[in-house]
Write a protein that binds this DNA or RNA. Sequence first.
DNA 1: CTGAAAGCGCTAACAC
DNA 2: GTGTTAGCGCTTTCAG
Lengths: 342, 342
Amino acid sequence: MAVTIQQIADLAGVSRGTVDRALNNRGRIRPEVAERIKGIAKELGYQPNMAAKALSTANHALQIGVIIQYAETPFMKAVLEGTEFAKEEVERFGGHVFVECIHGGDVKKLLKTMKDFREAGVKGIALVPTDDELLKKTINEFVEKDRISIITINSDLEDTKRLCFIGQDSYASGRVAGGLMGEIIPGDGKVMILSGSQENVATMERTRGFLDELEHHYSRIKVLEPRYAYDDDWVAGKLLKEQLEETPDLAGIYITAQGESGVCDTLKKYRLEKKIKVIAHDYEGENRENLKKGIINFILRQNSYVQGYESVMELFHTLCGNPTRQGEFWHTDIVIKTRCNL
Amino acid sequence: MAVTIQQIADLAGVSRGTVDRALNNRGRIRPEVAERIKGIAKELGYQPNMAAKALSTANHALQIGVIIQYAETPFMKAVLEGTEFAKEEVERFGGHVFVECIHGGDVKKLLKTMKDFREAGVKGIALVPTDDELLKKTINEFVEKDRISIITINSDLEDTKRLCFIGQDSYASGRVAGGLMGEIIPGDGKVMILSGSQENVATMERTRGFLDELEHHYSRIKVLEPRYAYDDDWVAGKLLKEQLEETPDLAGIYITAQGESGVCDTLKKYRLEKKIKVIAHDYEGENRENLKKGIINFILRQNSYVQGYESVMELFHTLCGNPTRQGEFWHTDIVIKTRCNL
DNA sequence: CTGAAAGCGCTAACAC
DNA sequence: GTGTTAGCGCTTTCAG
């Protein structure tokens, strides 16, 4: 049998209520008593019973909020599937999960939703952030003043008091892309990098990883100057066309951002889809089709579903007294998809 | 607020106890009353509260057993890590998880442990099975007579009453291996398949998937007759040597089973480690080193950790009244590992 | 066959 | 500051 607060109370010669106050830093207790109780709990290896905790607090304290920006994108839709699944699980424990979708990036709406959640008594929030000073401040305020736990999904805000970040290691995934490219194109082939914009941290990191890997292990491959398509299919197609005119013997394309369909269409038009190797990110939407058809050779998946699922479950565990399970950074697997493991 | 048995009881004009008997088929209740109660529960969309269920039954009904055969192998060690993590989570809910390791394959000991678990009051068992008639019978008996839920890990016993199977789709992973090999060796290269034994279903399925993929999409690649190393490094090395004498221009090796180190050592001896591409399974033990060094080009990972973790968590959910989350087959992701995502 | 009531471990409101 | 107590929703005796 696991140790209970009653046992601690008996040993300390106090009541359950006092132990509860001590162990949960609720105040209204003499510091030296609190210390003594904590000592006994530690000695006994006390672990709170999550079922009991959930049962007794579910109706007020087990409320979790999720805020997804860019909810219209295929990628975030997969995140949402994960949160929905987690929602079901949490609600089976008597908790509540509120999911708010935001179209595109809209920090104002994000902040508004955070405040609404706080009013509603939410004790943990998982959100897809954007790099914004006011948002950072608000996060810190929520954590410190309101004791609301916050998790960043997909992109991080490192210099905040958030509980943790769940997402992919962009640099590492870029390196994986580089390693794959190195293997599948000729040793002295030419490679184009088609990126999003220089403001986007994630895609810049991917690019950096890609370059590092090729430089260190496939140094004879020639990597062309990155071009930026600003996540647009049409621009991506156009940039590729221009590149092909300059570099008719192009061997591979690494797409770090959106715009994959534009690339694939252009390749098809020029009948180059079997000749030029393509590596892209995000196993969602049209990418799946293009992978199946063999136009894209590899897709590096972010495991977005897992991000959605784990962010909610991590908050759930935290609220039930189970400390963080993975540390500050929770990097999801870099899953490589080929035509064969669709 | 979620619906509770009390609400159902009120509506049906009976007591909580009666509702409990009806909803959990405990008998000692008039059939027509039971039906009526079930009807009301359904209408109301009743979902039992897992926290309450866990709290009230933890000490007798939330006992889970895990039996791992071949526990000495690196692969199963990873499975064990997953079960240990799950164990902690379950025990935080007041449950109990007993883990029994078996050295090598030992059905007698497996059966003995199952019976011990049953005596101890265990209500769910996750086990790594071997294909054995008595084991199958015992599983069915446990499920039907003792109402103990059973999950098979890693390899399946399809024609039994087990709750589900958690493991990898061997055929699919073979196909992925084929697709990768097709990309990284020359279009008309020669490939060797180094397998375990013809009795091992999983490795035969991998081989079948590998062959299918190459035949359909890389038909000019020449696949040599499979050789069987019986999971032995020395034999594997020897078979490779023989193959190299017959086929000095070998371009790739697909290893479906154990014996990878033997292959890598031989390749190093002949200074062929950069020339011949190697694809293997199981990201554990020495394979990691050999992948890092570039001797192995790709490892297809089984996600053994996940298998261990999810098997226990699935039993936990089942015992807490949450129905199966994934269906009869729960195929874990086929994770491709390269030097870059170690 | 059915109802009543105790209890699982923890929290929170209320006394003192 | 500290103790007491009434729940949270479900299971499980024990009466009837």
